[in-house]
């Protein structure tokens, strides 16, 4: 609630969410598909503070489903019981509900619509990620991705916003002092771990955690690397052939070129990469200066040409 509270709200480990109320199961089973989460579920799960403090980890686990975010998410046309098939007739929901075992690939294997996201590659690289190698099956897709708000197509104008969104997912756990097992990465520890990195907060605003903590291979997008395996060489990025261009920025540059054309996208590229002027204002100023200089030269030449012609006469 209050932004000041030191307790980060975490997604539950699994689809431990039990978004239905008394009698709603029967009711929903009979109801046609809805474009929003069922009102019966939202009555409780719409409460923004619905949740509990986990006894093992001490973290506050939110059971809130934001109906607005859901209705614009990729899953908006699914009703609650499409995924949550356990018994919800009881309140509080029975323990069986909490053990509900859901995975993205349960639904999305061989899904043609999602072919371009190569979910099998995602699954494989995820299995190699430090999250899985350290925490095993306890770590699921939903520890990072909120299926109730998941919106792959969400477009952000500014790279900085994409970075903010992406890093928020990581910081949700890695900045929390409450999360057991992550205690060594509590805020100060996170800073200590990145103490070697100059301008750490500037990096955090412009570069995704993933840019250093995943391998360069696009097929390994979900293979999160541990600190010791992550990228540490400054020159990897701060070079003409920046490693950043293998990831988000490559995508952005491509997008930008389609949208603005090659020349514009190159000139007005607002990505922050050493070696080029990536300040929009400076870019514009230098283009303006360049154009002004050309104009002046042209004017001067024209004037001289006219003067010469007059004199010749």
């Amino acid at each position: 609630m209050s932004a000041k509270t030191p307790h980060a709200i975490r997604r539950p480990r699994r689809w431990a969410i039990a978004p239905c109320v008394a009698g709603a199961f029967a009711l929903l089973a009979a109801a046609p598909a809805l474009a929003e989460p069922a009102p019966e579920c939202v009555r409780c799960h719409g409460m923004s503070t619905l949740g509990y403090q986990d006894r093992a980890s001490g973290a506050v686990v939110s059971l809130h489903v934001d109906a607005d975010a859901y209705s614009t998410s990729n899953h908006a046309d699914l009703d609650c019981v499409a995924c949550h098939k356990a018994q919800y007739g009881d309140y509080p929901h029975a323990d069986a509900v909490r053990d509900e075992d859901l995975h993205c690939l349960d639904c999305h294997t061989d899904d043609e619509r999602l072919a371009r996201f190569k979910l099998d590659e995602v699954g494989e690289s995820f299995a190699r990620s430090v999250h899985v190698t350290r925490h095993g099956d306890a770590f699921t897709c939903f520890d990072c991705h909120d299926a109730h708000a998941f919106d792959i197509a969400r477009d952000r104008d500014q790279v900085a916003d994409v970075v903010l969104d992406s890093n928020a997912i990581c910081l949700n756990c890695h900045q929390s002092t409450e999360t057991v097992g992550m205690a060594a990465l509590a805020p100060t520890a996170l800073d200590v771990a990145h103490a070697w990195l100059p301008n750490a907060s500037l990096h955090r605003r412009h570069v995704r955690c993933l840019d250093c903590h995943t391998p360069d291979d696009p097929a390994a997008s979900h293979e999160i690397l541990a600190a010791e395996d992550a990228r540490r060489a400054c020159v990897d990025c701060h070079t003409a052939d920046s490693a950043l261009l293998t990831k988000l920025y490559r995508h952005r540059v491509r997008e930008e070129r389609t949208r603005a054309g090659f020349i514009n996208a190159t000139v007005f590229n607002d990505a922050y990469i050493i070696g080029m002027t990536r300040n929009v204002a400076l870019d514009r100023a230098s283009v303006a200066a360049f154009v002004a200089a050309l104009t002046l030269i042209a004017a001067h030449a024209a004037a001289r040409w006219r003067a010469t012609r007059k004199a010749g006469r």
Partner: peptide, 15 residues
């Protein structure tokens, strides 16, 4: 933000 720590009602009370 989840101050109720006991009882079956705790989640709803937190809500």
């Amino acid at each position: 933000t989840a101050p109720h720590t006991e009882g079956t009602q705790r989640v709803m009370l937190n809500g």
